[in-house]
Computed example of a mutant assay.
Amino acid sequence: MIITDEAKVVLEEMLKENGQDSLQATLQQGCCGSSLYFTFTNKKADDQPVLVNGINVLMEGEAVLKTNTVTLKINEEGKLVVEDTAQASGCC
Rank of each mutant, 00 (worst) to 15 (best):
E60V: 14
M1Q: 04
V81E: 07
Y37R: 13
G90Y: 00
Q20C: 15
C91V: 10
E17S: 12
I3K: 07
K16A: 14
G54W: 06
Q87P: 05
Q28E: 12
V82F: 01
K8N: 08
A63L: 11
L80G: 03
L58S: 13
Y37C: 15
G78K: 06
K44W: 01
V50A: 15
E6L: 14
L51K: 01
L65D: 14
N56S: 10
I3V: 08
N68P: 00
V57C: 05
L11G: 03
C32R: 04
P49A: 01
N75A: 07
T69M: 02
Q48L: 11
K66G: 04
G78M: 02
G54Y: 07
K79P: 06
K16V: 04
Y37Q: 11
A25I: 03
S35Y: 13
P49G: 00
A88D: 07
E13Q: 13
C91N: 05
Q24W: 05
L11M: 09
G33W: 02
K8T: 04
K16T: 10
P49W: 00
A63T: 05
K73P: 03
E6R: 13
G19W: 09
Q20D: 12
L36P: 11
M59K: 14
V81Q: 09
Q29Y: 10
G90H: 01
K8E: 02
A63K: 05
I55L: 02
C92N: 11
T67K: 08
G30N: 02
A63V: 05
G90R: 01
D21A: 02
G90N: 01
E76S: 13
V9G: 02
E77N: 11
T4R: 00
G54C: 05
N56D: 15
K16H: 08
D46N: 12
E62V: 12
M1D: 02
E76M: 06
V82W: 00
S35H: 13
I55R: 03
M1W: 07
A25C: 08
T85C: 03
V82G: 09
C92P: 04
G54F: 05
C31W: 08
L36C: 11
D47T: 06
I55K: 06
K16W: 01
Q28R: 09
I55Y: 01
E76G: 04
T71N: 10
I2K: 15
L58G: 11
S22T: 13
N42G: 03
E13I: 08
V50F: 12
L72H: 03
G54P: 05
V70F: 04
E76N: 10
G19V: 03
T85N: 14
C31I: 10
E12D: 14
V10M: 14
C32Q: 09
I2V: 15
K16R: 10
